[in-house]
């Protein structure tokens, strides 16, 4: 008989064969892990700063529990029990335990708790109401600031991408003249990237003066520029690392200079990626300029800061909503371009 029905083939092996079970993890190691959990609990108990108690109001009775260390221990032991029951390997169980310990320790250190939000409700409520009722006409009032924000983003993106491309060419070992150059440029690039955009803005406001001196947009452009150079150079140089080496070798074999082979064999390969990074930083720039206003560079951020200081939350809400719309539009535009490109 050549043909057997599907049902027959499915039913056949069930009767006789026993499928192998996952191996049972070592109970001894699990015991050790439980010991580790208890040890962690003792450490947390000793280093905890307050004897806070978690109160759980249930209407008729209020349950209480010593805050955090005990909860942490229970969570750890439950997690271990679940892992053991599911026959998870000891290494994975250790990973789960470590994850719980780390997140518990970090959360306890900064005092992370959601319990305070209800207590502050009286403070939150009026502002929330203002945010829910934005002053729509205000969006049009600050159109000049919008124009400045977008111009800042355009200039910073164009110049930043140009400089970033050159740096990327020198940073990648594939396209740089020698190893020393690429290491140096990479180090410089790391320094540029290690300072956040707000840090650059603070620096440039301190150096050349901010909105108060009428130089807000200038400081903003310079800050965004450094921010963009860092991102574009990093991403592009990693794209260059991964280009197909064949055309590069062919250009070398035909006697091209370094610049020629970078232009002819590498640039065409990284161009789609590069343009896409440019669109991405343009989007970042629009968003970042809102935060940069706080430290005194021009644009929509400074308008928002002004309204915040005056407690005009309905105006702030209008700006925030406009910001969301603008960022969405830029995002849709760049997605369209990227699709056309790739």
């Amino acid at each position: 008989m050549v043909t057997t029905s599907t049902a027959e083939r499915r039913a056949a092996p069930q009767a006789a064969t026993v499928r192998p079970e996952p191996p049972r993890p070592s109970g001894l190691v699990y015991l050790g892990l439980a010991g580790l959990a208890v040890l962690a609990f003792i450490v947390f108990w000793v280093i905890q700063e307050s004897g806070d108690v978690l109160l759980i109001p249930l209407g008729f009775v209020t349950l209480w529990a010593p805050l955090n260390p005990v909860i942490g221990l229970v969570v750890m032991l439950v997690a271990l029990a679940v892992c053991f029951k599911a026959r998870i390997g000891t290494m994975a169980a250790f990973g789960a335990l470590a994850f719980i310990m780390m997140s518990y320790w970090a959360g306890a250190t900064v005092g992370f708790t959601l319990l305070e939000i209800p207590e502050r409700w009286s403070n939150v409520e009026p502002r929330l109401m203002a945010f829910l009722d934005p002053n729509w006409s205000y969006i049009w009032t600050v159109r000049d600031q919008w124009l400045i924000t977008i111009s800042m983003a355009v200039v910073a993106t164009l110049v930043g991408c140009a400089i970033g491309l050159v740096l990327a060419m020198y940073a990648s070992p594939v396209s740089s003249p020698n190893k020393g150059t690429s290491q140096t440029i990479k180090a410089v690039n790391s320094v540029i990237r290690s300072i956040p955009d707000v840090g650059w803005a603070l620096l440039f406001v301190a150096f050349i003066g901010g909105t108060a001196h009428g130089l807000g947009p200038m400081a903003g452009i310079l800050a965004l520029l450094m921010f963009n150079i860092g991102i574009v150079a990093k991403l592009t140089s990693e794209t260059i690392d991964a280009v197909n080496p064949g055309p590069v070798e062919a250009a070398d074999a035909s006697g091209a200079t370094l610049t020629q082979r970078n232009r002819l064999a590498i640039l065409p390969q990284v161009l789609p990626g590069f343009v896409s990074y440019g669109l991405y930083v343009f989007e970042l720039n629009i968003r970042a300029s809102a935060a940069l206003g706080i430290v005194g560079v021009g644009g929509i951020g400074s308008a928002m800061m002004l309204q915040l200081n005056r407690f005009q939350f309905e105006n702030v809400a209008a700006i925030l909503i406009a910001l969301i719309v603008v960022v969405l539009l830029v995002d849709m535009f760049s997605m369209y371009i990227r699709r056309k490109l790739l």
Binding site: G246, P247, A253, S254, A256, T257, L264, A265, P268, L271
Partner: peptide, 29 residues
């Protein structure tokens, strides 16, 4: 190298650009 041309197993063309631009790479030197 400008006087010694080389052909490869995997052709080694820049596939994103035109045939003419690929041939012009040979004029680099």
């Amino acid at each position: 190298r400008s006087r010694v041309g080389m052909i490869f197993q995997s052709f080694n063309l820049v596939t994103r650009v035109s045939v003419l631009n690929n041939v012009l790479v040979g004029r680099s030197a």
